[in-house]
């Protein structure tokens, strides 16, 4: 039913995407003054409320795509649009999450989350309530006053997720956010993320090297070529939602999709 509803929604939606990448080139400068092309002729689009993963071999420029979208890195060629606007004119809040938790080590759990609300210009009197709500939502109750070094890796990433949610982003850019976690915590965090996504319905770009994770979470999986990377395949994941990561693993369609993506990657392009 969910899938049907989504299809109808897709048909009714205007063609203007939330995020548009058109023939984008990115290069890094070398110390000797040269340039290393990292991304070449990359094109893709992400619709409003869509969850899209990017997979590809190490160093193919997956993270670079996110860094360009977040404004941390300039592109050389092509056009990047958010809501139809260039990056300079973009007014949307972009929430970024790294593999490392990048919390303020001296600040408490609550303060780390609160800074997201502060940067989103949420009114002073509403911040405490919002922080408390997120701490409950992410099951961090009782840890409000703890510092990051007193928490496990999984909990630290949940605090980082809390800060991201407090920032109320219009777009989520997640750069292997659960890559450093053990398998079990990773699945638990994926479930958490889906819970967040189904509640807020924002556009998500999720970079990962874990293909099963990509299929579990996404509406579409983009496969990138080796460096200089571009998108070689755009694979729709038409598995019904809500999805349970553990049940999904027994589903034949799930296995087929994972196989299909693996063979794309092996093809090497």
């Amino acid at each position: 039913m969910n899938a049907v509803a989504r299809h109808l929604h897709h048909d009714a939606a205007p063609t203007k995407p939330k995020i548009g990448f058109e023939g984008v080139d990115v290069a890094y400068p070398t110390p000797e003054g040269g340039r290393i092309p990292v991304v070449s002729e990359a094109s893709f689009a992400v619709g409003k409320g869509e969850f899209v993963s990017i997979v590809g071999p190490s160093g193919c420029g997956k993270s670079t795509v996110l860094r360009v979208l977040s404004g941390l890195l300039a592109h050389e060629k092509g056009t990047v649009r958010i809501n139809g606007r260039s990056l300079e004119e973009n007014r949307e809040r972009i929430g970024f999450m790294f593999q490392r938790d990048t919390l303020l080590p001296w600040a408490s759990v609550a303060d780390n989350i609160r800074i997201g609300a502060e940067l989103a210009n949420i009114a002073h009197e509403r911040r405490d309530a919002r922080v408390a709500e997120l701490i409950g939502f992410l099951r961090l109750s009782g840890f409000e006053k703890h510092r990051p070094h007193q928490l496990s890796g999984g909990m630290r990433q949940r605090v980082a997720l809390g800060r991201l949610l407090a920032f109320e982003p219009h777009i989520y850019l997640l750069d292997e956010p659960f890559g450093a976690l053990d398998a079990q915590t990773k699945i638990a965090m994926g479930r958490e993320l889906l819970r967040v996504w189904s509640e807020y319905k924002r556009s998500v770009i999720f970079v990962t090297h874990d293909i099963e994770e990509a299929v579990t979470l996404s509406d579409r999986v983009l496969v990138m070529s080796p460096r200089p990377g571009h998108i070689v395949r755009d694979i729709a994941v038409d598995l019904p939602r809500p999805r349970d990561p553990k049940q999904l693993r027994k589903d034949a369609r799930f296995a087929d999709l994972v196989d299909a993506i693996w063979s794309e990657l092996d093809a090497g392009h």
Partner: peptide, 11 residues
């Protein structure tokens, strides 16, 4: 990374 993260949030 910490500095970059705050830059993405336009601090």
């Amino acid at each position: 990374d910490l500095v970059d993260l705050f830059r993405t949030m336009r601090a």
